[in-house]
């Protein structure tokens, strides 16, 4: 580590072919030293992920192959039994459907609203800073407190229907019918988390060079075509990042469902992560819960890989 002279990064790509034979004989070449430093730098993070993520996932796979009597602590190997149970589970199709509707709704609304807010606030006017703060503030409110309050407001005789009544509208019983309950959980999740995306989009919009707008305006482009032809392509890398973060977050939304609807009415808002929690922690079926959790993990992985592959098609530039 005391070897302080390093080749420039580009040079270290070169194989040591062209070097002097004397240097080749030395084991701790600069390149090797640098590589060792690299491993040392990433070691805490890598070990953390291996110990606290990879090993537990391995254990979860083992659990999914067993039936676990939680009270006596006995594991019984059942092979693919839990996977067969998942195929036979009459509730699972509804759960997957609700998961798709909720996640899809959250992602689309979150990105569209986040971008719309960023565009509105990315200009100079009195109060812009204040509004930015207001839209961001739910992010710092704890999920449990936030959802609890929305639970009050969404009651049939709650605040929202109270306001609607003032406007002469007879509001629906939000949490008591499937479609409106889904709208309610989606909406509260979007409002709570859109602030992060708004700020990321604001940051991206700041990165778009002003000259491009000038040029487009001189060419007589409408503001709509400026947005779709210039702004959107230039911030597409941010769009990709926020899409990934939002999808992962949506698939993991647990507290919102647990506090607002408990997955009801019927199975209408029982998303996969809530179903996993019920099986593993309420019904004590850890084997089946692990099986479903691994399914959720597979979904997240597949979606992420698809997005990553598709990025070449729609992301404007990358490093």
């Amino acid at each position: 580590m005391t070897d302080t002279r390093l080749e420039p990064r580009e040079a270290s790509d070169e194989a040591p072919r062209g070097r002097a034979p004397a240097r080749r004989a030395r084991f701790w070449t600069l390149r090797r030293t640098d590589a060792a430093t690299g491993y040392l730098f990433i070691a805490p993070q890598l070990i953390g992920v291996l110990v606290f993520v990879v090993v537990p996932v391995g254990l979860a796979i083992w659990y999914s192959l067993n039936e676990w009597n939680i009270f006596t602590g006995e594991l019984e190997y059942v092979g693919g039994g839990n996977y067969q149970a998942a195929l036979d589970d009459p509730q699972l199709p509804s759960v997957l459907g609700a998961t798709a509707v909720f996640s899809g709704g959250v992602v689309v609304l979150n990105l569209v609203l986040g971008l719309a807010l960023a565009v509105m606030l990315n200009r100079r006017f009195k109060g812009a800073v204040l509004f930015r703060t207001l839209f961001f503030s739910p992010v710092v409110v704890s999920v449990v407190a936030w959802t609890l309050v929305w639970g009050f407001l969404l009651q049939d005789n709650g605040g929202i229907n109270g306001v609607l009544e003032q406007l002469g509208v007879d509001g629906p019983n939000w949490l008591q019918s499937g479609p409106t309950a889904m709208i309610a959980v989606t909406f509260t999740q979007v409002v709570r988390s859109v602030g992060i995306n708004m700020v990321l989009f604001l940051a991206a919009l700041q990165g778009v060079p002003g000259e491009l707008y000038e040029a487009a305006r001189l060419d007589g482009a409408s503001s709509r075509s400026v947005f779709f032809r210039i702004t959107l392509p230039l911030i597409s890398p941010t769009l990709l990042l926020t899409a990934i973060i939002t999808i992962v977050g949506a698939l993991q939304s647990f507290a919102q469902i647990a506090v607002l609807t408990e997955g009801g009415p019927g199975l209408s808002t029982t998303v996969l992560v809530y179903y996993v929690f019920q099986q593993a922690f309420s019904f004590n079926d850890i084997g089946y819960g692990s099986t479903l959790a691994l399914m959720l993990l597979t979904f997240v992985m597949v979606l992420t890989v698809i997005q990553w592959q598709l990025r070449r098609k729609w992301v404007f530039y990358e490093d």
Partner: peptide, 19 residues
């Protein structure tokens, strides 16, 4: 026995009553 699953499964079906 298995109170949580019985309760939850019953609730899911019984929700249709409240219309």
């Amino acid at each position: 026995t298995n109170p949580a699953e019985v309760a939850q499964t019953g609730k899911t079906a019984l929700d249709a009553m409240w219309a």
